[in-house]
Design a binder for these strands. Sequence first.
DNA 1: ATACAATTATTGTATATACAAGATTTTAAA
DNA 2: TTTAAAATCTTGTATATACAATAATTGTAT
Lengths: 150, 150
Amino acid sequence: MRRIAQPELDQIGRGCLAFQMRSLSRAISAIYDAALSEAGLKTTQFSVLVAVANRGAVRPGELARSLRMDESTLSRNVERMCARRWLRVEPGSDRRSRRIAITTNGIDLIRAAYPAWRRVQDQVANRLGSDGIAALKLLAQRLRHPVSNE
Amino acid sequence: MRRIAQPELDQIGRGCLAFQMRSLSRAISAIYDAALSEAGLKTTQFSVLVAVANRGAVRPGELARSLRMDESTLSRNVERMCARRWLRVEPGSDRRSRRIAITTNGIDLIRAAYPAWRRVQDQVANRLGSDGIAALKLLAQRLRHPVSNE
DNA sequence: ATACAATTATTGTATATACAAGATTTTAAA
DNA sequence: TTTAAAATCTTGTATATACAATAATTGTAT
């Protein structure tokens, strides 16, 4: 088994694309979480809340696909948000499926959190610049649609 | 309190920069985790392992800063990795500080995981393209160093 | 009709993450 | 030197995340 040289190790550490992306995610999430904390919720919760408000009563699986989130992850998130009366789960058309709906409390919470979200969104957008925003879009596209010729 | 219109809601959902970044992080982490699972570790663990191997015995706080990770987060990660005998915590110069070191097992694990990491790194790099990689770098720079004129 | 496959969602278990609150130890100030 | 402040880590608590396993229901093939 070959030895891994020191310069190579350094390249691995700083060069790992997953690490870089996770690092960015942590950084940006911290900024948003700090801004949204005054409204008493987290970034992910805000996203889920808005998604449900946007789509009306929606099946868990469908919502998870839409948010590109694992079903079980969403399930746990919804669980917490139901406990807080921001969401509500109703029986679905099928007896195995369900429908997630937003409550009046949830709608109020979106309204209450919106100013803080707007501020931080503008602030971060400024910080990233238009090319930064474009960079984000590019990455999303590349990760969603793999290049065909390989 | 103003009502938030439907089109605006849609913009909030898909436009939230934190949400986009988290989504990317989930996507890329899933790819790396799948590749590294054959070696029995996760992306973050690999990063921490390599960082420690790279820097030699290092203080927790220093390592956390270097990885841009919360100290408590790192502490918990190290805890798990010590339980697996990949890392070891030694007394530091100070009686309040400590030094994290990699074990022989840890070094072996890096060697064992390296081929899988190399493969997935190349695969994702291909998928992102050189401009994708550049985009990632740009974002990191913008998030680390805020634009001065605002 | 019955047995098997597919759909839909939740639970078990484990890692990742971070804020706030300790617990120790050093340093600095009075 | 006694005491307050700073430094350094870990722990308490909560959320985020996902893979594998389970549970329940519906659809299908024989």
